[in-house]
């Protein structure tokens, strides 16, 4: 990926650094790296929902049993 001229601290610099980081990420990360990050993110979200549920801040279960076919 080519390197554009950047003005330090500018919004354009932020955007180009993001683009460059994405390129580095896609060029070096494996599927296992992606899966690990996704699992970590899922665990954080699950923990947050469990805490919300304990505080009564999630919807109540609508019904038990399997979905209708």
């Amino acid at each position: 990926m080519s390197k554009p001229e950047k003005v330090p601290g500018s919004l354009e610099q932020a955007a180009q650094e993001a683009a460059d980081a994405i390129a580095r990420h896609l060029a070096s990360d494996t599927a296992a790296d992606d899966a690990r990050r996704e699992a970590e993110r899922d665990a954080r979200i699950k923990a947050a929902i469990e805490k919300l549920a304990a505080e009564g801040k999630t919807p109540p279960p609508k019904r038990a049993g399997p979905t209708e076919d």
Binding site: A39, D42, K46, I49, E50, T58, P61
Partner: peptide, 30 residues
């Protein structure tokens, strides 16, 4: 709070799909 869990308190990530996990029948895990 899900956005903070998705990203971080300083940089929350607002994403529609993770909000569906609030519904108990959908399930809270990935």
């Amino acid at each position: 709070r899900l956005a903070e869990a998705n990203g971080s308190p300083d940089q929350p990530i607002f994403e529609v799909d993770s909000i569906k996990r609030l519904v108990p029948e959908y399930g809270s895990d990935g």
